[in-house]
Simulated scan of single mutants.
Amino acid sequence: MRTKKKPVIIIPYGSKKKICKACGVSPETVRKALKFITESDEADKIRREALNNYGGTLIEVNVRI
């Protein structure tokens, strides 16, 4: 079994709802953006908001491939 490091942004409890409201998107969109599942301008904007305004932290997690 092999593993790979993948970036993830973690945010404090309740911040996801605030990011949804600020960016005008659904919780699913925020979840996918913070887990780097989607790659778009909107996802980049959500990640910047999370890191700069909502106490987000960029970490790397090991995932099985």
Rank of each mutant, 00 (worst) to 15 (best):
F36G: 02
K4F: 15
A33L: 08
E49N: 10
L58I: 07
V63F: 13
K32G: 03
K35M: 04
K17G: 05
T29P: 10
P7S: 11
S26V: 09
E42Q: 15
S26T: 14
P12I: 03
G24M: 08
A22N: 02
I10S: 02
K17Y: 14
D41A: 08
I59D: 02
P12E: 14
V8C: 12
R64Q: 12
G24E: 06
K21H: 11
I19V: 02
C23M: 05
K16I: 01
S40T: 10
R47A: 00
K45A: 08
A33Q: 05
K21E: 08
T38A: 13
E42F: 15
G56V: 02
V61E: 10
T29N: 09
G14V: 07
S40V: 11
I46W: 00
N53A: 10
C23A: 07
V63I: 13
C23R: 00
N53K: 12
S15P: 14
A43M: 14
T29G: 07
S40R: 15
T29W: 11
D41S: 06
A50M: 06
P27T: 09
A50E: 00
P7G: 14
S26A: 13
G24P: 00
K17M: 10
R64H: 12
P7V: 09
A43S: 11
G24D: 04
V30H: 03
G14L: 10
S40P: 13
G55Y: 03
K18A: 02
K18C: 00
D44K: 10
T57V: 03
Y13R: 12
I9F: 11
K35E: 06
I10N: 03
G14P: 06
L58R: 08
K18N: 04
I11H: 05
K4R: 13
C20L: 05
V25F: 00
I65T: 05
C20P: 03
I9V: 14
R47H: 06
S26R: 07
P27K: 15
G14Q: 07
K32N: 14
Y13P: 14
E39V: 09
T57W: 04
G24A: 09
S40A: 07
A50P: 01
V63N: 09
K17T: 06
P7H: 10
S26W: 06
E60S: 14
V30S: 00
